[in-house]
Amino acid sequence: MIELRKVSKTFTLHNQGSAVIDVLTDVSLSVAPGECVALTGASGAGKSTLMRMIYGNYLSQAGELWIGDLDLTKAEPREIIALRRDVLGYVSQFLRVVPRVSTLDVVAEPLRAVGVSGADAGARAQELLHTLNIPERLWPLSPTTFSGGEQQRVNIARGFAHPYPAILLDEPTASLDAANREVVLGLIEAAKARGAAIIGIFHDEAARNRVCDREIDVSRFTTGLAA
């Protein structure tokens, strides 16, 4: 489902003496449907950079990066947008939302985008918010004023609303209490069971051991200054 072939990433800082920083070189990996792979390595090893490359947020300088039948290194913006809408989900550590949009609509939006009716999307959003213990009185409010933990749970609800075939998870259990951590791990296991290919960054070692089938140490692709 997700396959990287000799992908490399360098940053060229034109306004800082044109410094060239090699971050990742010749990354090759593949993740099959139903498999969960953890990216490991010390802080600065390039885990988040690799994750952002797989999401199409960072450009790769070399290699091929396939999600399903699309090579992100050659894709048009509209193809990446369609991929993110239908195929590739991403739960980041931070919620980025438009002011004035209610929590319920924030969570339902990915479903509305793929053509699910307002009623069905709303019902699924309610179910997820309920499972993730977001009090019902908060649903009509914008999550911009919520606590960090609440925002993260809203973000997770949004990320799991649509059954994406491929999912990227950046620290999904950070800053969650034990009960909610258990809910999130359950969601990940359910996504695996329905055949989603998952790549995750987990600093929570117990969580990683429970849901991940393999670990890939990113530092073996790391070269130069970022090491």
Partner: peptide, 21 residues
């Protein structure tokens, strides 16, 4: 030119880097 979040988060050209920073 490119995907909005890619150009803003990983700008390639010197001028785009200056603009974003």
């Amino acid at each position: 030119a490119g995907l909005t979040d890619q150009v803003l988060d990983d700008p390639q050209h010197a001028y785009s880097q200056l603009l974003v920073s």
